[in-house]
């Protein structure tokens, strides 16, 4: 099981590094695009976000509904997929890990 890194050290302040350090997370183009989008939207909306670990509850990440709406729209533009509208079984992701797998599954 993945360790919750919130209690970790200074390395956790850098989400990208944090994710790369996690042994059980395999990098993928979809994951990279999502990570980048979270960072960009947080910066443009002036929000401080917590380290993006797979077990982070999205609504506790520091981003609000508007931020998630923008992230989903940007990902539709950059990746060409909107799993909320195209997936056969729609569900609303609770954690960051849910969010990633929702998109990875939709990307096939």
């Amino acid at each position: 099981m993945k360790q919750n890194s919130i209690a970790g050290g200074a390395a956790d302040l850098d989400p990208a590094r944090n994710v790369q350090d996690s042994p059980d997370v395999s990098p993928s183009p979809v994951r990279d695009a999502i990570l980048r989008q979270f960072q960009e939207v947080a910066a443009s909306q002036g929000k401080a976000i917590k380290p993006l670990t797979d077990d982070l509850v999205l609504l506790n990440s520091g981003l609000d509904s508007l931020c998630f709406a923008i992230i989903v729209a940007e990902l539709e533009d950059t990746l060409g997929i909107d799993p909320f509208s195209s997936a056969e079984e729609v569900y609303f992701p609770v954690t960051f890990g849910d969010f990633i797998s929702f998109y990875e599954n939709a990307a096939g």
């Binding site: 509904s65 508007l66 998630f68 709406a69 923008i70 989903v72 729209a73 909107d82 909320f84 509208s85």
Partner: peptide
């Protein structure tokens, strides 16, 4: 407006 699955529209 642009349709959005989280907020209805953006």
């Amino acid at each position: 407006g642009r349709r959005n699955p989280i907020t209805g529209a953006l």
